[in-house]
């Protein structure tokens, strides 16, 4: 068992932040934790890594109790950049981890090259930008080639190019056999990384496979919009029309092939077809409709 969390309960100021959380991961995969600010995502990760005490429940990572510090030879936890020491260099941080975890120092070059931070790894952290700090944090958690990687908002502060490279590294690690649990607000990124999502709602986790809830949204330009609308109305298909005259529908209501068949039957030509995946975001909106993302429990 890679992750075994049973009935985890954590109370904060008389309010249950986590109220019976169960997580069981038996084989390497990428899992996302999704929920509004203060829903308990970071609290769950902190409880799992023994940074926070919890009121009830049991946590085992890679078969060991979470209180056993030796788990960190194989478990890495990417936290926010406040954990960095401003007056030390990135190299100092990485060297320390190598020393503590008996990793050859040559690995520092491998990791920094892979992440693309070799040019500034020997500069003091106080001179780093937000993105550079995020790169260093990533280097610090992958340098030991962990079996389990916990990431708290790993894409914070990254520009789109860096986000793509980080996503690529995470996917490579996953392919190499690392289990990744990440919490993120970036639902688009989650869609690109994983289909296994734990939505954190009311202190419990709702496991979803995005394959079950994901859909494609199509944006289609046709030769005769009025006629196409008439055809779709006749077929009782749910759709919208954008201001620019594109027909918008989701494949859970109508497959693209059915749409094409309808249009062909009435000699309507399809001029342009775009599609967009909607998965985590859609489910998120369904689950947290009306939840104020900023007015939540402070941890």
């Amino acid at each position: 068992m890679i992750v075994d969390v049973q009935n985890l309960k954590k109370k904060y100021k008389q309010q249950w932040v986590l109220n019976g959380v169960d997580v069981a991961i038996t084989e390497p995969q990428i899992v996302a934790l999704v929920g509004p600010n203060g829903s308990g995502k970071t609290t769950l990760l902190n409880c799992m890594t023994n940074l926070l005490a919890f009121d009830e429940g049991d946590v085992k990572l890679l078969g060991k109790k979470h209180t056993d510090s030796s788990i960190f030879y194989d478990v890495s936890y990417l936290q926010d950049n406040r954990i960095l020491y401003d007056h030390l260099t990135g190299f100092d941080h990485l060297k320390f981890i190598c020393n503590v975890q008996h990793i050859p120092l040559s690995r520092i070059k491998d990791v920094t090259d892979r992440i693309g931070m070799s040019s500034y790894v020997k500069k003091r952290v106080r001179n780093y930008s937000l993105g550079m700090k995020q790169h260093l944090l990533l280097a610090m958690v992958i340098i030991n080639e962990p079996k389990l990687l916990l990431l708290d908002e790993p894409l914070n502060g990254l520009d789109p190019t860096s986000a793509v490279s980080v996503r690529k590294i995470l996917l490579e690690l996953y392919k190499e056999g690392t289990t990744i649990i990440l919490s993120s607000h970036n639902l688009d990124e989650i869609d690109r990384l994983t289909h296994t999502v734990y939505f954190v709602k009311d202190g419990v986790l709702l496991k979803e496979s995005l394959k079950d809830v994901a859909s494609n949204q199509y944006y289609v330009s046709v030769s005769d919009l009025e006629k196409a609308q008439f055809v779709l109305d006749e077929a009782s298909v749910s759709y919208d029309v954008t201001e620019t005259g594109e027909i918008v529908f989701e494949d859970i209501n109508l497959s693209l092939q059915s749409f094409i068949n309808h249009m062909n039957a009435h000699n309507i030509t399809l001029e342009k077809v775009d599609n967009q995946m909607i998965g985590a975001e859609k489910r998120y909106q369904q689950l947290f409709k009306g939840v104020d993302h900023h007015e939540t429990v402070s941890l």
């Binding site: 890594t49 510090s69 960190f72 030879y73 936890y77 936290q79 954990i83 960095l84 503590v100 975890q101």
Partner: peptide, 15 residues
């Protein structure tokens, strides 16, 4: 206070 102790606490070190 600034939570940098979390870095040390998530290393394989005896507390």
């Amino acid at each position: 206070e600034d939570h940098s102790a979390k870095f040390l606490l998530t290393q394989p070190l005896k507390r």
